[in-house]
Nucleic acid binder design. Structure first.
Lengths: 194, 194
DNA sequence: ACCATTCTGGAACGATTGGTCAAAAACGAC
DNA sequence: GTCGTTTTTGACCAATCGTTCCAGAATGGT
């Protein structure tokens, strides 16, 4: 009966994601959001509830996008080593583009959330475990292909790769130098060798 | 003529450091500080200027302490590999103690500071470069001892080690599991092998 | 044309933010 | 003790925070 939605909710959510991603939760005010999203203050509260809920939806959105992106990169490469390189180096190129905030939303959040905040801490840990599993599955493919030695502890290797990923994301925020980061990735991936 | 200082400025600064370290800049209010430091609001402003200056002094304090700690660990171990293990694993034990905030103040700050904040970004990059140099010097010692192959690019290795350090500090914040982290460190240090 | 509903602009809410000020209390020198 | 200086104190400031509300403009279905 009534009128249709005026604004694209998904597009607005993406804008919110970028803001929170770049500035973090506390440094992003509702006024900042209203201005950046281009919708009215009341519409924001009507659509998303409150700041906290908007933040969580934005983060959830990020997780979905990031998951999709990583799996796409993996599927594009037959060689596991090449896939991991592409993931770590390809996302580094993204750091240099101005359209996207630097670093990884989830990694940023890990250092911003209080360890006492059980809800978000748990969410972050689940996120970490999920990506470790994605890494582990991908490594398993490498073993089957004969690219990786079957004697390796894949779970441990996967945890290590996530740590390496997080580390590169941290230093990419303050100094996204492709040359330096490229060397780091090459060094870090030496552990894949038999 | 005047009177002597009423409170221990260094001790107060340490408390401020812990607060900022744990909660970050924006999430720490001046009221939080006043309560935690045990001094009056006006005394805080009289002694440290404003919130920003207090934060920078607290971070500077952290850098000094952390630098001292790292160099002390290195000096305690003849083997470079053992020294690096002790640094990465030893500080992990610190994560479990409740007296100290989790993670690394500098790493946390890297993901919290806006890349547009030239002042702090530069400070963080200097901090990174400094530790990379400490790592490189230590690795050099390993080469002289015959522990490391002289063919290695020590600067690149040092950058990698800082990245590994940062990564472990990130995941230590949400899930400081010594077993998992121990495995990650062992895996990450395989790159030291000739 | 009308109604239902959604969005807009703005004002206003109490709470909290970072920061200030004048007065009082605490001290060292004499 | 008394004076002079400085720290400490608690009240206080304007600004901003997240949030709510409402009257009117805008729009789609019937």
């Amino acid at each position: 009966m009534p009128r249709t939605k005026q604004f694209d909710e998904a597009a607005v959510l993406t804008k919110a994601m970028h803001l929170f991603w770049e500035k973090g939760y506390h440094a992003t005010s509702v006024s900042d959001l209203v201005q950046a999203l281009g919708i009215n203050r009341a519409s924001l509260y009507d659509t998303f509830g409150d700041k906290q809920q908007l933040f969580e939806r934005a983060f959830t959105e990020y997780r979905a996008i990031n998951r999709q992106r990583i799996q796409a990169v993996f599927n594009q490469h037959k060689s596991v080593r090449a896939g991991l390189e592409a993931l770590l180096l390809g996302s580094l190129e993204a750091e240099l583009s101005t359209e996207q905030p630097r670093g990884c939303f989830a990694v940023n959040l890990s250092t911003q959330v209080s360890p006492k905040d059980d809800r978000l801490t748990k969410l972050l840990f689940e996120n970490q475990r999920f990506f470790e599993q994605v890494f582990a599955d991908y490594l398993q493919k490498g073993v089957k292909q004969g690219e990786l030695s079957p004697t390796k502890d894949l779970q441990e290797l996967a945890s290590y790769l996530y740590t390496l990923y997080a580390g590169t994301k941290v230093i990419a925020r303050t100094h996204p130098d492709p040359i330096s980061l490229g060397g780091i990735v090459q060094t870090g991936l030496h552990v894949l060798e038999k």
